[in-house]
Design a protein around this nucleic acid. Structure first.
Lengths: 208, 208, 208, 208
DNA sequence: ACTGTCGGGACATCCCGTTAGT
DNA sequence: ACTAACGGGATGTCCCGACAGT
């Protein structure tokens, strides 16, 4: 048994993630996972005690990949507007070059785990909260740096960006094309630019 | 007797709809449906040939209820801005007074039926397209009536409204509160008002 | 589907009882039960929600058969000594003409259900208590009727009869012959006769 | 290193014996044994080729412990009556201070290994036969020494002692108390004393 | 129109034993 | 001598759909 390169456990997670993301937790059978990983029952259960544990690991794997994209996209951006636009770009990229086949794992998990799979639900909450904090923090620092209008509401911005783009991910998935995502991203980008200092307050209600 | 039969069929659909909407298609078992309807196997299969047929009927039932809400909300509105705001109000109402327990059935179905349940997916597409046409048509007629700025893009407006609010429905479901929905609706309402004739063009990129 | 004669549920219990009694609860697989009953999983699970429920029903079936033997054996006996000897005869008959293949179900269940299967254990306790009460009651009435020595202890008699004969059932099962049972029964019969009024008190310590 | 290995093997047997004695052979899983021993699969299979081999070793371990108790109890007894009473005392002690948790291993094994585990069954037969020979031999020597009535039947005495007390072990296990064991032991002790020379022949049928 | 019964395949999980690796 | 990974079959239970009975 060669345990070089990717450890088996990591390989299982990598192979299982797209299966869960496409078929959902309920819709994924152990047989699907055996097929995807090339292992047998015994092999899988040595690494994960249950289907749910594997699903959680797969979810974490997917959100870690997304976090890496965020890190890379933000690495060379300083101005708050640039940083927010980069975040939009990352979420937008889910539609045409997904980190994991099947769309946004947070969206998928949030919709399916309807009280039924508390472990998964909590993970989805945590990931989404992390994103919103990242956006909100960028807004706060942008205001402090004089880059964004002082009345910019971090919570409002975080909600608008995540809601609009996740909704667009859903539409892209539903129709199998990116037209909706393009329009939604355009809208959000315009919205972000309107937050910059020196702009007219286009969305007075959005401010505090 | 026929009337009784029809009544039973309708009753089945009404009782099954929330089960499907909460647990998803894969996550719903026949036993769940028997419990919810109070019938036995045979009683269900007299009216529906399969679990999927019943799921489709339940989905249609839910979207019909939503369509009724749209009709009621739009009945007394003439001005395009009012009509668009009314549409926002309807989608927003999903969060705190859902037509069917479990959130927006179109969102749920769009996310679950990845490629796996073509019948359900097609229904979800159809329902979403219907909503977007309704929004787009309202924009078009508003432009023609001189109520909306002539460069208002019906597709853009339809995408922004549906994406943002469906995304907010997801956030409301994920966190179990309506704060995100409130913010998203506020944003969309501001956006709609900015389309009215006599407003500054706040979103030049959104126009054609 | 012919539901004439023995109802299916009763037939299942009748066919399952010897399997459980020979192989034990842990040692009996669902496949064994399907083979014994001729049904399929679905058919079985319509009547019993779990293997344990079926095991309990099978145990009750077996102890009911035993109770019938007691009733038949005692039907025409009046004198306490005769009644106690008849009870001995019934327990003794387990060895060479068992009510259910595999020996005494109470003994078997008592030994296997070691805290692990509380439902079964409780049934075994109940059945054994029922037997001991029957013996003890016979002793009491025999004393009251002047048939047994007044110092005969109902509890002692019940313990001696059940312990000795159940132990002998075990030996018969272990060795596959009835020699031990014959000897044990002879001993117990002598013991019982020694309780009769007019006998010397052979077992002074057994009396109160 | 060899010494260490032997120590490990003995430790495995010691830790496994109560598991088998409580849960039975069928009811004991390898996982149970790993938990009890603190080893892993390979560690066990280095010492025992199969679960059944380990079960046999555990059974032998338990019966060896019992044999030690017999030896200790008989070491300072000369008179046949004293020796027989000491044997009763040993079997009686199973109930409140078991050699191995879970009751008498011979009883347990005799009941479970119906025809299914011939290796275990043969061991149980051998152990029981050993006990009965010990009792029978004591009776024979007691008769020869003029300590016991010349018509005392070694087989009868062996059967009465083992059957009654094993039956009482079962009752003690079933009810979780020692009341039945106390009564049964009292009875058997009286029986043994009645065999002594100078006693009235209380059980004429028990003699040859 | 509806109940209850049944088949038989699928499900997640557990099972025992083997083997590679140290 | 022991760990850890793994195969693959068996386990109890659930699953959907069919159908006989009324």
């Amino acid at each position: 048994v060669v345990t070089r390169g990717l450890a088996t456990k990591a390989r299982i997670v990598r192979d299982a993630a797209p299966v869960f993301n496409v078929r959902g937790f309920s819709g994924t059978s152990m047989a699907d996972l055996l097929l995807a990983t090339g292992l047998q029952k015994g092999g899988l259960y040595n690494h994960f005690g249950s289907k749910e544990q594997l699903a959680v690991a797969a979810f974490d794997y997917a959100t870690d990949l997304i976090a890496e994209r965020f890190d890379r996209a933000l690495a060379d951006k300083d101005h708050a507007v640039d940083r927010l636009l980069a975040i939009v770009g990352v979420i937008r990229s889910f539609a045409d070059s997904p980190v994991v086949t099947g769309g946004c794992p947070v969206l998928n998990t949030a919709i399916e785990s309807d009280d039924l799979f508390p472990g998964l639900r909590e993970r989805a909450q945590r990931a989404m909260t992390h994103w919103q904090r990242r956006i909100g923090g960028t807004v706060k620092r942008g205001v402090a740096a004089g880059e964004l209008r002082p009345d910019s509401d971090p919570f409002m911005v975080a909600t608008v960006i995540t809601a609009t783009l996740e909704g667009a991910v859903m539409l892209a998935k539903l129709y199998g094309d990116t037209a909706h995502m393009d329009r939604a991203a355009t809208h959000v980008e315009t919205y972000i630019r309107s937050l910059a200092v020196g702009q007219e307050p286009d969305f007075p209600e959005d401010r505090r």
